[in-house]
Amino acid sequence: MGFKLLSKLLVYLTASIMAIASPLAFSVDSSGEYPTVSEIPVGEVRLYQIADGVWSHIATQSFDGAVYPSNGLIVRDGDELLLIDTAWGAKNTAALLAEIEKQIGLPVTRAVSTHFHDDRVGGVDVLRAAGVATYASPSTRRLAEVEGNEIPTHSLEGLSSSGDAVRFGPVELFYPGAAHSTDNLIVYVPSASVLYGGCAIYELSRTSAGNVADADLAEWPTSIERIQQHYPEAQFVIPGHGLPGGLDLLKHTTNVVKAHTNRSVVE
Rank of each mutant, 00 (worst) to 15 (best):
201 I>Y: 00
236 F>T: 14
37 V>C: 04
202 Y>A: 13
68 Y>T: 05
111 A>G: 07
121 V>T: 00
176 P>A: 10
186 I>P: 01
180 H>R: 00
43 G>N: 04
169 G>K: 12
40 I>D: 06
5 L>M: 13
116 F>R: 07
117 H>F: 00
199 C>A: 02
48 Y>F: 04
192 A>F: 13
110 R>C: 03
202 Y>T: 02
217 L>K: 11
219 E>N: 00
240 G>A: 12
78 G>D: 04
49 Q>H: 04
200 A>C: 09
32 G>I: 00
107 P>K: 06
178 A>E: 08
164 D>C: 09
33 E>F: 10
44 E>I: 01
25 A>F: 15
210 G>Y: 15
29 D>E: 11
86 T>K: 00
145 E>K: 14
134 T>L: 15
250 L>N: 15
207 T>G: 12
233 E>W: 07
23 P>V: 11
77 D>Q: 07
132 V>L: 03
206 R>H: 04
22 S>Y: 04
151 I>E: 01
46 R>K: 02
60 T>Q: 03
45 V>C: 13
140 T>M: 15
194 V>S: 15
239 P>M: 03
35 P>K: 07
164 D>M: 05
259 A>F: 04
266 V>W: 04
257 V>K: 15
174 F>A: 11
128 R>K: 10
47 L>S: 09
42 V>F: 05
71 N>R: 06
163 G>W: 10
266 V>Y: 13
77 D>F: 04
193 S>E: 07
266 V>N: 03
240 G>F: 03
23 P>G: 08
12 Y>K: 11
63 F>I: 03
69 P>K: 12
236 F>K: 01
145 E>R: 10
61 Q>S: 05
127 L>E: 14
150 E>L: 01
139 S>F: 15
131 G>N: 04
60 T>W: 06
217 L>N: 07
206 R>T: 12
164 D>G: 10
13 L>N: 08
223 S>H: 09
37 V>Q: 13
250 L>Y: 04
208 S>D: 10
100 I>E: 00
261 T>Q: 04
135 Y>C: 15
223 S>E: 03
123 G>R: 01
46 R>M: 13
148 G>R: 12
178 A>M: 04
169 G>N: 03
224 I>Y: 11
258 K>A: 08
171 V>E: 01
255 N>F: 02
44 E>K: 04
73 L>V: 08
35 P>Y: 08
235 Q>Y: 11
223 S>G: 11
64 D>T: 08
205 S>V: 14
266 V>H: 08
33 E>D: 11
145 E>N: 07
259 A>L: 03
60 T>H: 04
245 G>T: 09
212 V>E: 07
194 V>A: 13
251 K>D: 06
50 I>V: 06
217 L>I: 03
70 S>I: 11
219 E>G: 09
167 R>G: 08
248 D>V: 07
80 E>P: 01
250 L>P: 12
170 P>K: 12
64 D>R: 06
246 G>V: 07
120 R>V: 07
225 E>N: 15
19 A>L: 07
232 P>Q: 13
246 G>M: 04
191 S>Q: 05
214 D>T: 07
126 V>Q: 06
156 L>A: 03
134 T>P: 08
31 S>F: 00
198 G>A: 06
110 R>G: 11
160 S>I: 12
45 V>S: 04
130 A>Y: 12
17 I>Q: 10
51 A>G: 07
1 M>C: 13
178 A>I: 10
3 F>K: 03
224 I>P: 02
16 S>Y: 06
173 L>Q: 01
65 G>M: 03
85 D>W: 00
175 Y>G: 03
98 A>S: 03
160 S>P: 07
51 A>D: 03
123 G>Y: 00
34 Y>N: 05
56 S>T: 09
1 M>S: 06
24 L>A: 11
173 L>M: 07
187 V>E: 01
136 A>I: 15
256 V>F: 13
125 D>C: 01
127 L>T: 15
165 A>Q: 12
256 V>S: 10
95 A>S: 11
70 S>Q: 11
50 I>L: 10
117 H>L: 00
204 L>R: 13
85 D>F: 00
87 A>R: 00
57 H>I: 15
196 Y>N: 09
35 P>I: 11
31 S>R: 07
149 N>G: 11
244 P>W: 13
220 W>I: 14
73 L>E: 10
90 A>R: 13
130 A>W: 09
224 I>G: 10
81 L>S: 10
82 L>T: 10
244 P>E: 07
172 E>T: 13
34 Y>F: 04
235 Q>E: 15
254 T>A: 08
163 G>C: 06
4 K>S: 02
239 P>F: 02
150 E>W: 15
137 S>I: 05
3 F>Y: 02
97 L>C: 06
237 V>Y: 12
255 N>D: 02
130 A>I: 13
182 T>M: 12
141 R>M: 08
216 D>G: 08
8 K>L: 07
169 G>M: 13
34 Y>V: 08
238 I>L: 12
240 G>V: 02
207 T>N: 15
23 P>Y: 06
24 L>K: 06
214 D>A: 10
184 N>S: 09
75 V>G: 13
172 E>G: 10
113 S>Q: 12
221 P>I: 12
2 G>E: 09
77 D>N: 09
135 Y>M: 14
195 L>H: 01
85 D>P: 00
265 V>R: 06
68 Y>E: 07
262 N>I: 04
176 P>R: 01
133 A>N: 15
162 S>L: 08
103 Q>T: 14
64 D>K: 10
57 H>N: 13
14 T>S: 11
204 L>G: 11
260 H>E: 07
2 G>F: 07
97 L>A: 03
67 V>G: 06
13 L>W: 04
223 S>Q: 15
23 P>D: 14
83 L>N: 07
26 F>H: 00
109 T>N: 04
189 V>L: 12
52 D>T: 04
67 V>S: 04
14 T>N: 12
239 P>Y: 02
92 N>I: 10
184 N>A: 08
14 T>I: 09
46 R>C: 09
112 V>Q: 00
44 E>M: 09
228 Q>M: 12
101 E>W: 14
157 E>R: 12
231 Y>F: 02
4 K>C: 04
264 S>Y: 15
147 E>C: 02
221 P>Y: 10
50 I>P: 02
216 D>E: 11
228 Q>T: 15
209 A>C: 12
260 H>M: 05
94 A>S: 10
47 L>A: 05
163 G>N: 08
72 G>D: 07
201 I>S: 13
103 Q>R: 08
167 R>F: 07
180 H>G: 00
260 H>S: 02
261 T>N: 13
128 R>A: 12
47 L>N: 13
6 L>I: 05
209 A>L: 06
105 G>M: 01
77 D>G: 05
178 A>Q: 15
192 A>S: 14
149 N>K: 00
169 G>Q: 05
9 L>V: 06
242 G>L: 04
128 R>P: 06
40 I>V: 07
117 H>E: 00
87 A>E: 00
96 L>Y: 00
104 I>T: 08
239 P>G: 12
159 L>Q: 14
102 K>R: 12
267 E>I: 01
166 V>Y: 01
201 I>E: 03
58 I>R: 05
8 K>T: 03
71 N>F: 15
166 V>L: 10
82 L>Y: 04
213 A>I: 06
152 P>S: 14
37 V>T: 09
5 L>E: 08
133 A>V: 11
126 V>W: 11
33 E>W: 09
172 E>W: 10
229 Q>I: 06
159 L>Y: 04
196 Y>C: 05
202 Y>I: 09
178 A>V: 09
141 R>S: 11
69 P>Y: 07
97 L>M: 01
245 G>P: 04
234 A>K: 15
146 V>G: 10
35 P>C: 12
30 S>E: 07
45 V>T: 09
202 Y>V: 08
51 A>L: 06
144 A>V: 05
183 D>L: 01
105 G>E: 12
111 A>C: 07
211 N>C: 12
168 F>C: 14
179 A>L: 06
239 P>H: 02
24 L>F: 04
94 A>K: 14
18 M>T: 04
62 S>T: 06
178 A>L: 13
186 I>W: 11
105 G>I: 15
23 P>S: 07
265 V>E: 10
263 R>T: 00
181 S>L: 01
55 W>H: 15
264 S>I: 15
185 L>E: 04
185 L>G: 02
134 T>D: 12
249 L>F: 15
33 E>M: 04
253 T>R: 02
7 S>F: 13
16 S>P: 04
248 D>F: 00
113 S>H: 14
91 K>W: 12
51 A>V: 10
87 A>M: 02
206 R>P: 13
247 L>P: 02
155 S>H: 00
162 S>Y: 09
207 T>W: 13
105 G>S: 04
46 R>N: 13
22 S>I: 13
240 G>Y: 05
70 S>H: 02
156 L>D: 07
92 N>A: 13
99 E>M: 02
202 Y>K: 14
262 N>G: 08
